[in-house]
Design a protein around this nucleic acid. Structure first.
Lengths: 334, 334
DNA sequence: ATTCTCATTGCAACCGGTTGCAAAAATACA
DNA sequence: TGTATTTTTGCAACCGGTTGCAATGAGAAT
């Protein structure tokens, strides 16, 4: 049904190569030829078949975008930025929804069948081994929001989650809280593990401060809400570092339900600085994760990787400032 | 770099056709042959190139998923359900982020270049002409969440937005509100237009009721919040039908900020019944949009369409019940 | 054992393009 | 104007598979 190169060639009375070349930039075609071909192509409504050409060129311009977080609204923004960013560079995102799957095998196989030029793993929960499976299969890969490592095996663009955890702890300590807790996302998520580890390592420097921790089932509003409701039924801490803004906002909702106030009764610090965190009636103090930068850097890195697949693996770490709003009490006046 | 059919054939000492046939189901291969080939394939780590085969078979199993709403969290669920549903059927979603683009030309061209087998337009804002452009280009298309028409030109799976508007109006009237308003999404969105039209047409039956309307800039929390803040500075109505839950929740946040109560001072009814609407501290009365059903039906329809592209266009309409929660005052007791 | 079927296999052409190479055409240089 | 050089063009092979067709082989029927 669609028009092929051959038909255009026949109509223009030229060889197939000539047609191919007018649609390949950098190829040698005279102006006269180009005009003839373009005329015929226009009349026929021809546009080249990207997949057929990929057979010989070895490039599909397809990029696998694999993710497993379809509950955290932050990821809507992530998809928005990734799809737009890739499109702007002439690349096409082939979306893979991992959901509960943990083994990379299927995704690797599938994405190789479709000859993707590269893969972006956009997930803060998957371990580095996941992305490595793509590299091992010879597919250029960037892991965005992944676990930081000082000797990365695959390219990773992310924040230092341990440092974020330490920062949260330091912030709570500086406010004079003496009984604090970590309310994390799923325990299997690398980001949860790292934020937890950082948080606790900083608190270890302050033995006078009591600490505890627990984990929500997912990075979602509901999970945060449920977990905080559970904690409120026990003996809640003075302040919580929630592993993510959605957890924080869920927790705030639980606190409000119980008729408690924040920061009056309980302090909360989140992580991400999602749009909602800035709403006046939420006004969440949180640690900002520079999502735009991480994504644009990931795309840039992917482009470089497509140029040179053997590029030495690098970790790009972005820093995370605290955004002061209204869910922590002010520092004690000296 | 990846292993090809030819290499497998050589290793197994058979013809290329034989290898192809063992990987094509329905083809005629003896058990002995199959075993030989599978052994060789396994040893070499072969998996067939889906794009190469698409050249001859004419099917890529690629489905274009085009959307333009990357701000409404409901769409995260939409993407989740679509990608999972398509994957389960062996199809691969090629995501297209329309953003501000209104013309279908580019998307059509791009998706045809990638020889997608079909296209799902997932958008409540794009006009039917958008989807029609795909049909006109010979690409099977399903418009999910699109505008309902009694003589559809393309397949559409959706709700009757006009009826939803009428239902909202009837509900407000039944609660005894006498000064009501429509707070819609962007005025250019078909869903906004239809909900508005339905709302007003029902109110026309009650000339004693005062009505007004206005539009938020987008289907997003922030836009709803901003618009409600603006309205509160003027003379607000008794109750609002917000064109969407995110607008409602934004509006609720504005109302709370002003120290007003809902439903005490102002009533709100939303549309969608997103997860957050059920939170205790939001507890939004809203009109339920059956997203799961719409999406699974869309996928099912797409599969049928791939079987028979000339299937007669149909509109599948799902009904929308009111979900009673706590943001409207109860009906006046008789 | 012979003939007839029918399943299996390989050959070769094809899907829609790209590209190295050599011939042809255009341009530069003398 | 003739020759050297460069650009443009077409041929044909190739990318990684699929498939119609005819040849082969195995089993069934006689």
């Amino acid at each position: 049904m669609p028009v092929t190169l051959k038909e255009v060639a026949e109509r223009a009375g030229v060889s197939r190569s000539a047609v191919s070349r007018t649609f390949t930039d950098g190829a040698s075609v005279s102006d006269k030829m180009r005009r003839k071909v373009e005329k015929a192509a226009l009349e026929l409504g021809y546009s080249p078949n990207a997949l057929a050409s990929s057979l010989t060129t070895g490039r599909t311009k397809l990029i696998g975008l694999v993710s497993n977080n379809f509950h955290n609204p932050i990821f809507l923004q992530v998809f928005d930025l990734f799809t737009r960013g890739l499109q702007d560079k002439g690349l096409r995102p082939l979306l893979v929804n991992l959901s509960d799957e943990l083994e990379p095998g299927n995704s690797v196989r599938m994405l190789r069948q479709y000859s993707v030029d590269g893969v972006v793993v956009a997930s803060s929960t998957l371990p580095p081994e996941f992305a490595r499976a793509f590299r091992d299969a010879g597919v250029p890969v960037v892991h965005s929001f992944g676990r930081y490592s000082s000797s990365p095996e695959v390219h990773v663009v992310t924040i230092d989650n341990r440092e974020a955890g330490r920062l949260a702890a330091r912030t709570l300590v500086s406010r004079g809280y003496t009984d604090v807790a970590f309310l994390g996302g799923p325990e299997t998520a690398t980001s949860t593990q790292d934020r937890y580890a950082g948080f606790m390592s900083e608190l270890a420097l302050h033995p006078e401060i009591r600490s505890s921790y627990s984990f929500a089932e997912a990075y979602s509003f509901d999970a945060g809400r449920r977990e905080m409701l559970r904690l409120l039924n026990l003996k809640p801490s003075e302040a919580y570092f929630c592993g993510d803004d959605v957890l924080s906002i869920g927790a705030l909702s639980a606190i409000a339900d119980r008729g408690l106030s924040c920061p009056g009764d309980i302090g909360i610090i989140g992580l991400n600085d999602m749009e909602m965190a800035g709403w006046e009636n939420i006004n969440l103090t949180t640690i900002h994760q520079p999502i735009e930068q991480i994504i644009s850097s990931s795309i840039e890195l992917m482009l470089a990787l497509l140029e040179n697949p053997d590029r030495y693996p690098e970790a790009r770490i972005y820093s995370c400032p605290v955004v002061e709003r209204g869910t922590l009490r002010p520092p004690p006046t000296a």
